[in-house]
Computed example of a mutant assay.
Amino acid sequence: MENLRQFSGESENEIWQQIAADMHQQNEILEYSAQINQQDHQVYFDIDIDLGGGFEGGFETTTFMAPVNNSELKFHLYPQNWLNEVGKILGLEDVELGYPEFDKTFIIKASNPEKLKRIFADETIRQTLLKYPDCELKLSHEHDKPNARNLLTFNLDLALISPEHLREVYHVMLQILEKLGQPTLPNSGEL
């Protein structure tokens, strides 16, 4: 993450006023990375837009990440598509949360389905994620090496450059972190 901007404040409103003002000052946002420190939570987000050129097609992404200490819950939520439907027929496990539109939109794998159901009982979380049906949300180990920390990540192959949309996703990240019941400030080092 080049040019990592740092924002902190006591409230979500205070932080997002700072971010909106900073983003408004940018001529054109092709890359934007920020670290947000709010109380005992640390969340990073990154926007990357490559316009492509020549024979190359462009791409755009929005990623949010938050380190999570000692979570026993692991999950992976990703878009439902025809290939995943075939996988379900062949035995792919899919956690049903009991919300028809949400269950129809996403495939969910979880180490503890009951705990995940309690987290996604929050309608704000579900409704925000439904706005981004192509997103991927997961809580898993950062890598396969011993002592790997856990990361809560949100990925979308679309650049969210509106502070309002970014804030919605940030709010969902915070809600999930709070429901996991733990601070996310890492013990040492940065993401």
Score class of each variant (00 low, 15 high):
residue 122 D to A: 12
residue 185 L to K: 14
residue 62 T to E: 09
residue 125 I to A: 15
residue 130 L to F: 08
residue 79 P to S: 04
residue 183 P to E: 14
residue 67 P to G: 05
residue 8 S to F: 11
residue 17 Q to K: 13
residue 138 K to Y: 14
residue 177 L to E: 06
residue 171 H to E: 10
residue 69 N to P: 05
residue 90 L to F: 13
residue 187 N to Q: 10
residue 48 D to K: 11
residue 34 A to I: 04
residue 74 K to M: 06
residue 162 S to I: 08
residue 15 I to A: 01
residue 167 R to P: 00
residue 188 S to D: 07
residue 110 A to R: 07
residue 168 E to H: 14
residue 49 I to G: 00
residue 159 A to I: 11
residue 12 E to W: 09
residue 111 S to F: 04
residue 131 K to M: 15
residue 100 P to Q: 14
residue 41 H to C: 02
residue 141 H to A: 15
residue 121 A to K: 11
residue 50 D to F: 12
residue 84 N to C: 00
residue 116 L to Q: 04
residue 95 V to K: 03
residue 119 I to H: 02
residue 38 Q to M: 15
residue 146 P to W: 10
residue 6 Q to S: 07
residue 94 D to V: 07
residue 140 S to D: 06
residue 161 I to T: 13
residue 146 P to I: 07
residue 167 R to I: 05
residue 89 I to H: 09
residue 49 I to Y: 01
residue 113 P to L: 10
residue 78 Y to I: 00
residue 41 H to K: 10
residue 3 N to R: 15
residue 162 S to T: 13
residue 154 F to D: 03
residue 56 E to I: 01
residue 13 N to I: 12
residue 133 P to Y: 11
residue 32 Y to E: 05
residue 74 K to L: 09
residue 124 T to I: 03
residue 169 V to N: 01
residue 130 L to G: 07
residue 124 T to V: 05
residue 92 L to G: 01
residue 17 Q to N: 13
residue 139 L to P: 04
residue 125 I to M: 15
residue 31 E to A: 12
residue 53 G to M: 09
residue 100 P to H: 06
residue 65 M to N: 07
residue 82 W to G: 12
residue 158 L to W: 14
residue 16 W to Y: 11
residue 96 E to F: 01
residue 164 E to S: 01
residue 120 F to Q: 09
residue 170 Y to D: 09
residue 23 M to K: 03
residue 27 N to Q: 10
residue 103 D to S: 04
residue 95 V to G: 04
residue 37 N to F: 03
residue 48 D to F: 09
residue 101 E to G: 00
residue 155 N to P: 00
residue 185 L to A: 08
residue 15 I to C: 02
residue 69 N to V: 13
residue 26 Q to E: 10
residue 56 E to S: 10
residue 81 N to S: 12
residue 34 A to R: 03
residue 64 F to G: 06
residue 4 L to P: 06
residue 104 K to F: 03
residue 38 Q to C: 12
residue 184 T to V: 12
residue 142 E to K: 14
residue 87 G to I: 03
residue 14 E to W: 13
residue 41 H to W: 05
residue 98 G to V: 11
residue 120 F to Y: 15
residue 135 C to D: 04
residue 165 H to N: 00
residue 180 L to D: 06
residue 160 L to C: 11
residue 128 T to E: 05
residue 189 G to A: 07
residue 47 I to N: 06
residue 90 L to V: 08
